[in-house]
Design a protein around this nucleic acid. Sequence first.
DNA 1: TCCGATACTGAGCGGGCGCTTAGAGTGCCC
DNA 2: GGGCACTCTAAGCGCCCGCTCAGTATCGGA
Lengths: 209, 209
Amino acid sequence: MSTAEETAGAEMPPWAEVTPDAARRLLVAAVEAFAERGYHATTTRDIAGRAGMSPAALYIHYKTKEELLHRISRIGHEKALEILRTAAQGEGGAAERLADAVSSFVRWHAGGRTTARVVQYELDSLGPDARAEIIALRRQVDAEVRGIIQDGVAAGDFDVPDVPGTTLAVLSLCIDVARWFNVNGTRTPEEVGALYADLVLRMVGAGPR
Amino acid sequence: MSTAEETAGAEMPPWAEVTPDAARRLLVAAVEAFAERGYHATTTRDIAGRAGMSPAALYIHYKTKEELLHRISRIGHEKALEILRTAAQGEGGAAERLADAVSSFVRWHAGGRTTARVVQYELDSLGPDARAEIIALRRQVDAEVRGIIQDGVAAGDFDVPDVPGTTLAVLSLCIDVARWFNVNGTRTPEEVGALYADLVLRMVGAGPR
DNA sequence: TCCGATACTGAGCGGGCGCTTAGAGTGCCC
DNA sequence: GGGCACTCTAAGCGCCCGCTCAGTATCGGA
């Protein structure tokens, strides 16, 4: 677990690509509010208030409340995909790359739980067009993990009777971390990442390391 | 996978314990609406309309919209706990009981996805008192699964370095089925249950069956 | 010094929300 | 048959929602 290390860190400059500054502050405020209360329970007045602005200011930078969610979701999914791609294209064997992918993906969900929660659980709040775009990104996420598992099976390292089903389960396990992980809990994101990498290697029937 | 068979079926008479009939129709309508759109995006007018009643009729049977969610959540959690208890108190070894617990729990999440979605993902929409009551039920759910795993470790059937962490992962895997399972998809609840039982046995290091 | 562009605010519009109330319909016990 | 308890509806109250718009402050360039 080293190749994808730098991409799975604590969201180094989070949302740095969002400009200008006011637009980024609004977006960060929206992420926090959506994560705490959910998209539908969050008001535009709440988002603007958290960013220290009047409700009307939001509409200078974003056309609607939904556009905020769309932007958050797309950036988040692109980040998730980048993390998995980095791990999948690593140099080790399938077991090493799968462990790397799982541990960095889990660290992203646990460490950036606020963002991950919005990204993974507010998909249904998007309109049809935006949702379709995001679903395409999710298919790419699935393909990355499936690719590693297929490599392991082809190399004889893994014993996996149902590759698509196991891929689904591995991703499901990682994603659900965003639901239960507690920042004030006893486990650090790194500990959960290591535990989950071990569990996933067992799931694919990789021999003991 | 047989002892918990009858309790994990297709919600045989769903919500049969809710009376009178009008109250049950409203509750079933609320489950569907909450599952489709989420609690906050569902209006009381929508719930009443689905039940074929006027908006005011809802308030004869329930004090608030939140009371509906609370009732749904409590009944659902009690059912989930019953399913796991039945499996945990089965007669086989730890491996058999764990496989039974996972497969029946997964079948409940996949087959009754509508209900399970509300039960598992609308917890935060409850007020503090109701949430505390539900969290107590969830701790009992966790204890049942942890008990089976501990039995397996004590008997030397399982190899589990981190029992609480593995318990968390097993439950997480099952619960997340309610998020991704698609009724129109290619897999039946039974198939997913069997696949997941196998994956979980690998996670706990149980020997091949 | 003035100008236009940009970023923002205060006030508020139309509408839908959760929930209430007055009263009508219905069936059961005496 | 009369009274009552129960169930449900039509109407609507007060509130807050997403979003708009006229107007103000600020600032770089000529």
